[in-house]
Amino acid sequence: MTFQAIAFDLDGTLVDNAGGVALALNTALHEADLPCFDLQRVRGWIGDGPDALIERALRAIDLQDVDTAWLSTRVRRNFDAMVLGLPFAECSIYAGIEKLLEQLGRKNVPLAVITNTPTVLARAVLEEAGLLGCFTTVRGADTAALRMPSPLLIEQAARALGTRPERMLMIGGSASARQAACAAGCRAAWAGWGYGLLGSEQGDTVWRLDTPADLLVRMALPQTRRRGRPAA
């Protein structure tokens, strides 16, 4: 199948930033005199943006007679400051991503980043990682309405790349990214090298990519879709 553009999720797809997210979250919680969480637990909360991340953390803390709305705002402010101050702390680029982006660039494939992370934070992480210049557009969920599984970010990115969602491939590890792709009429691929889970909701719209190099193999070969199953 030929695609006119490719979009990537950020967290757990381009970069393993679970350590950085945990650092930012725990720093923000500590500054609010709240308990911190281990990396494995924080990793399971990543994927729906910082507001959802903080909400999950606060729900896990026994808070009584506390204005959680005010507390969430305070923690979010400190979280953002930490990420902007050290955008790539405790993070790494997944093996094979840089080579993949280089090869796609040689093929002149327009690329986007679509993420539930707010745009300013996503751009800071990508810039620090040295990846920002690989992408034509970066689309983050700056409002709740844009947050995946809403298809709005995918639709915006397709327009920015001069194509339609159905001619674009979305690569991500989270269920919300795949659901957003399906809602937009965009083909999806699961990034098996990250920390997202391939759930039963994928239907027949998902490619399984075990390594970034698998994408180039898939794009070069004709694909057969089987009803009710992922493409083999």
Rank of each mutant, 00 (worst) to 15 (best):
L86P: 00
P87D: 02
P87S: 04
F88V: 04
F88W: 02
E90D: 10
E90T: 01
C91T: 02
A95E: 11
A95Y: 06
G96D: 03
I97G: 01
E98P: 15
E98V: 13
L100K: 04
E102H: 14
Q103L: 07
R106F: 12
K107G: 11
N108Q: 15
V109I: 08
A112T: 07
V113D: 08
V113L: 12
I114F: 10
I114H: 13
T117E: 14
P118C: 06
P118S: 04
P118V: 01
T119C: 06
L121R: 01
A122S: 09
A122F: 02
R123N: 13
A124H: 08
A124L: 09
V125G: 11
E127P: 09
E128N: 07
A129K: 13
A129W: 08
L131N: 08
L131D: 06
L132Q: 15
G133Q: 15
C134R: 15
F135A: 14
F135Q: 08
T137N: 10
T137P: 08
V138L: 13
G140T: 03
G140F: 03
A141L: 07
D142W: 04
D142N: 04
D142E: 07
T143L: 06
A145D: 12
P149E: 02
S150Q: 04
S150M: 03
P151H: 01
P151D: 03
L153M: 10
L153S: 07
E155C: 03
Q156Y: 08
Q156I: 06
R159P: 00
A160Q: 10
A160C: 10
L161V: 04
G162L: 10
G162M: 07
G162T: 06
T163E: 02
T163Q: 02
P165T: 01
E166Y: 00
M168P: 00
L169P: 01
L169A: 04
L169Y: 00
M170H: 10
M170N: 11
I171N: 05
G172A: 09
G172E: 15
S174F: 13
A175Q: 15
A177P: 09
Q179D: 10
Q179I: 07
A180P: 10
A180E: 06
A181L: 02
C182A: 15
A184N: 03
A184Q: 02
A184Y: 06
G185V: 02
G185A: 04
G185W: 04
A188D: 14
W190E: 14
W193P: 08
G194P: 06
G196T: 12
G196W: 13
L198S: 15
G199Y: 08
G199I: 03
E201W: 13
Q202K: 15
D204V: 05
D204K: 06
T205F: 11
T205P: 08
T205S: 13
W207N: 11
W207I: 08
R208V: 15
D210Q: 12
D210L: 14
T211S: 05
P212R: 03
A213T: 05
L215E: 04
L215G: 00
L216A: 00
L216S: 00
M219K: 07
M219D: 08
A220V: 02
P222W: 00
P222D: 05
